[in-house]
Write a protein that binds this DNA or RNA. Structure first.
Lengths: 217, 217
DNA sequence: GTATGTGAAGTTATTCACAGCG
DNA sequence: CGCTGTGAATAACTTCACATAC
């Protein structure tokens, strides 16, 4: 059996479903239908059912989905049932903000180290982790068995830093620098480009205006 | 003429092309072919040509695209040829990091205000902007004609804050809180969920492992 | 009755392949 | 001759609609 291929868009929605289910769970709700889940986001009920059914039969016909059960299933599918040792590389303003970001532990991401070049920051404790010198990157990554890296260094050194992360045995990199990273196929990269996100907004706003002008003319 | 509809995925790639072209420009390159542009990202040449051709005929047959010319065209398409007055709402660690993010000005985003509830932060200057009290949100937004908001407040108050931004006349919101915001159709929302991004990575890593196991058995 | 799971249909996006232009 | 721009073909994704199970 050759590897089945799951649509990226479906996988992105799984995270969104999980967020909604966590909210429902906190509110004491125990069961939810595809339609209820759908109307909390801007998708159709069939979409929700199809997305979930891609990975198994989780629902009860005539009833819906069990909230707690589905949370566990989604975590299992997304891989966050297990804990992921994560490092923040670059302790500038953004890196420091991420180190203090409270949601990570409860979502399966365990911060275990930070790195920076600035001697003044070495040895500092931020949140629960220590800031190590950048020289020790490979060594600490390997020794602590870190699997995920959050890359928050200047764009100019992003690629060389990524290369060292790969050498240290990292499996995934979330890159905040505005650079398309090159990495071997077995290391996954997720590009988080804040400027690009803003550009999507300005595109939509600009073209919305055009549409209005067109339809009213 | 009813509004043409552009694929989201194409628009996302336009931002990526723009980043590459900016790099080429800085390196002194004046012309680039769709193939050259394509191999710097993981897309095909036809994809690049189709994406660009959606918005006009920018290339020179037999030659390629003019780098400077295409940069101007993409900025025009994305709406960043003009400057966008932008506010950061919530001056916690993340908000402060974004206020100091140096790329915004050169990309068309002009930070003009920040807001926070903490009295200790009011009146502070961060980067080039002043921190205003949250009570003055609508007033300052409207007076300064702010069009974009970067929302970096706790999830619990994200929706109510978004409502006030809408009341103040904002046109787009980039939301860092893990909450699907409700907003009227003329206000665009872009959801930036860092945890979800990490989950995409863990999904890929987990399923990669499965694939290897399957294909080697 | 109610809501899932899923073939089939419909829609949208990507890739192919080549005519046409510089 | 090289590279764009684009119809036509293909592939991917979404929605419909209903048999099926509770």
């Amino acid at each position: 059996l050759i590897s089945e291929n799951f649509p990226d868009s479906s996988v992105r929605r799984l995270s969104a479903y999980l967020r909604q289910l966590e909210l429902l769970s906190a509110a004491g709700v125990t069961r939810v239908s595809s339609r209820q889940l759908a109307e909390r986001m801007k998708v159709g009920g069939a979409q929700v059912r199809r997305d979930l059914a891609l990975f198994g039969q989780f629902g009860m016909r005539g009833v819906g989905y069990g909230v707690e059960e589905m949370i566990a299933n989604l975590r299992d599918i997304l891989g966050t049932e297990r804990r992921w040792k994560t490092a923040v590389v670059g302790a500038g303003p953004l890196g420091l903000a991420l180190l203090r970001y409270g949601d990570f532990p409860q979502r399966g991401f365990e911060l275990v180290a930070a790195f920076d070049v600035d001697p003044a920051k070495i040895g500092m404790n931020v949140g629960t982790v220590e800031v190590f010198p950048m020289q020790r990157l490979e060594e600490v990554i390997a020794r602590k068995e870190v699997k995920l890296a959050i890359l928050a260094v200047p764009a100019a050194v992003a690629q060389q830093t990524a290369d060292r992360l790969v050498a240290g045995g990292i499996e995934g990199i979330m890159n905040f620098a505005t650079t398309a990273l090159q990495a071997p196929a077995n290391v996954h990269v997720s590009q988080v480009d804040i400027t690009a996100q803003l550009e999507q907004l300005t595109f939509q706003i600009s073209h919305d205006r055009d549409d209005r002008a067109e339809t009213t003319s």
